[in-house]
Design a protein around this nucleic acid. Structure first.
Length: 560
RNA sequence: CGGGGCGUGGCGCAGCCUGGUAGCGCGCGGCCUUUGGGUGGCCGAAGUCGCCGGUUCAAAUCCGGCCGCCCCGACCA
């Protein structure tokens, strides 16, 4: 029974003054969420309905691959987190109970579940297993943002697979990938599965499911048959016009010209005809000079992998001491390890001379300096993958799936006995979806001037019924009757029975964004049919007065 | 953590520079009006001006400290 007159749906004409993202503004304006603190949000009834629809889609598809739902506590003893070496993570909330015992608020549940599996699983006969929950996660985010997109507390559908070996893990992983494809297809979103960085989870690799939209915090490189997070994307650089070769590097005076743009301008060459030097200090290794093409940027995730150790950019005193005057450094004659990006093609480049106010031209990698090669640059729009150009779009990370391998089962001693009776480590995967982000992404992707336009699978209600006319009138009686009939036909109906003007009701309905809006008033009686608006596109339709509910239910099933 | 900004009825904002009665729009309550795109009118309720301290006869306003929130960056399963 959802009559708007008695519902808790506080719509606002104006968005919060500090909101930027479309989904943030609209979720607040439409009465779906309210803020409690930084990164802490209450879901009001309609918002929670949408969230629950996203969660339910995930639940159904997980159940369909043989996963079993369960529930674990958020508040946990710190001990297992110490064993997996994750107690040190800054985002992990840590606290003590009255006895002084160390506890954490779980940011994910690998530890808790693996402890159980370690206790319960004895034999290869107990595997494989896929277990999941839909439950709260806590993370002390350095910067919560954009409404519900990045919060300190949020719900996650987190599932975990346990297999006897890598082959089993691959199979469980593939099941999840297929289930996730179905989930996002059902959610009505445009998404890409992309190669991803594994970050703090560790393990053998993973994929993210990304939904392109303006508010996204990540960037995705998308090409024909290719999609990857920019953090890990690899592509072939578009060629650049280089200066003619010289027999040997030649000094040119470049007073005060410390940026690629300045030097390229002064020498009338393309920025890509320069070599850009990026000095870093690598733990237990010292300074390394990373060199990329002048029009390229260093990708720190890729660089970290190439270096195989933590690093930071060098301070200017360190640069001056170990390489040359900042702004004029280059690989030629630099007495440090040099890492040359693979995007630097053969030919003759301009580079810093390691002398004040001076650059060199005619620098040929390999001839004039020796370097290790690695792919450490950020891909750029227009780079080529399989002959096709890529584009780069901002996107929301909706889900992340990981092949964890034995990253957690080893420290937590989750083992089983194989057919030969020998003890083996369990192979593990973990898989997360954020229903809140699914909802926010849907809003971001489909909102228009009037407000939200939900995919039918996520909408808090299938139909909003706008009643005109006061109690006692024929049109009011008709609206009441249709409300009952629509619900009997299996539709979720929000009935706007408020004593309010038509403009207010229509505006609120379009702000909330249910896929269909029905209007019942005097015109309905006169015309003998009910006016129906399809929210996506705001297209006007009609339904007969006889059998309205069936006609509306049928129409609903055809919607995106 | 670095940079920038904001905190004044439920929401959005002005007032602060130059100290002296706390204001506007929307919303809210009552009456009338209107009833297919936020109708119009009259009346009314509602604010410790984020908190603490200081200066002053007097502080929303000036000074100091703290807290909260937002944005950019860093960071981020």
């Amino acid at each position: 029974m959802t009559r708007l007159s008695g519902y808790f749906l506080p719509t606002e004409r104006q968005p919060p003054g500090d909101a930027e993202a479309v989904s943030h503004k609209l979720m607040v304006r439409a009465g779906l969420i309210r803020q409690v603190g930084a990164g802490l949000w209450t879901y009001l009834p309609a918002g929670w309905r949408a969230h629950q629809k996203a969660a339910q889609i995930a639940r159904e598809e997980l159940d369909a691959i043989g996963a079993h739902e369960m529930s674990m506590p958020v508040l946990q003893p710190a001990e297992a987190w110490k064993r997996t070496d994750r107690y040190k993570i800054e985002e992990l909330f840590k606290l003590r109970d009255r006895k002084g015992a160390e506890l954490v608020l779980a940011m994910t549940h690998e530890e808790a579940l693996t402890v159980h599996v370690a206790q319960v699983v004895r034999s290869y006969r107990d595997l494989p297993l896929i277990l999941y929950q839909i439950q709260t996660k806590e993370r002390d985010e350095p910067r919560p943002r954009a409404g519900v997109l990045r919060t300190r507390e949020f719900v996650m559908k987190d599932s975990y697979s346990f297999d006897r070996d890598l082959e089993g893990l691959e199979a469980s992983y593939d099941k999840h990938a297929a289930a996730y494809d179905r989930i996002f297809d059902r959610a009505g979103l445009e998404t890409y599965r992309v190669e991803a960085d594994v970050g703090m989870m560790g393990g053998l690799g993973g994929h993210e499911y990304m939904a392109p939209c303006a508010a996204g915090e990540d960037e995705v490189a998308i090409g024909r048959g290719y999609a990857a997070n920019v953090e890990v994307a690899r592509a072939r650089a578009r060629p650049v016009e280089l200066a003619p070769a010289l027999d040997a590097p030649e000094e040119v005076s470049t007073p005060g010209q410390t940026t690629v743009a300045q030097v390229a301008g002064a020498l009338s060459v393309a920025e890509g005809a320069l070599l850009k030097a990026f000095p870093v200090v690598v733990e237990e290794r010292g300074t390394v000079l990373v060199v990329v093409r002048g029009d390229h940027r260093v990708n720190e995730v890729k660089l970290g992998k190439a270096l195989g150790a933590p690093f930071r950019s060098a301070h200017s005193e360190e640069i001056a001491r170990s390489i040359g005057p900042p702004g004029f450094i280059g690989p030629v004659g630099a007495d440090v390890e040099i890492l040359l990006d693979e995007g630097v093609g053969e030919g003759s480049y301009v580079a810093g001379a390691n002398r004040p106010e001076t650059h060199l031209r005619g620098v040929v990698p390999g001839r004039d300096f020796a370097a290790q090669r690695a792919d450490v640059r950020r891909v750029e729009a227009g780079d080529l993958v399989d002959g096709g150009e890529i584009r780069i779009e901002p996107a929301i990370e909706l889900a992340h799936i990981f092949k964890l391998g034995t990253r957690y089962t080893e420290p937590l001693a989750a083992t089983y006995l194989d057919e030969q009776g020998s003890e083996q480590l369990v192979w593990m995967g973990s898989y997360g979806i954020g229903p809140a982000r699914v909802c926010a992404a849907a809003i971001e992707q489909y909102a228009d001037e009037q407000g939200i336009s939900w995919p039918r699978s996520l909408a808090p209600f299938d139909v909003e019924l706008v009643g005109r006319g006061r109690p006692g009138t024929d049109e009011h009686a008709l609206a009441e009757r249709l409300y009952d009939e629509l619900r009997s036909a299996g539709l979720d109906v929000l009935y706007d029975d408020r004593d309010a003007g038509p403009g207010e009701k229509f505006t609120d309905a379009e702000l909330l964004g249910c896929p269909l809006r029905l209007t019942v008033g005097r015109r309905t009686l006169a015309a003998g049919e009910v006016e129906v608006q399809v929210r996506r596109g705001r297209e006007a339709r009609s339904a007969p007065l006889d059998g309205t509910a069936e006609a509306v239910a049928k129409l609903w099933r055809t919607l995106p």
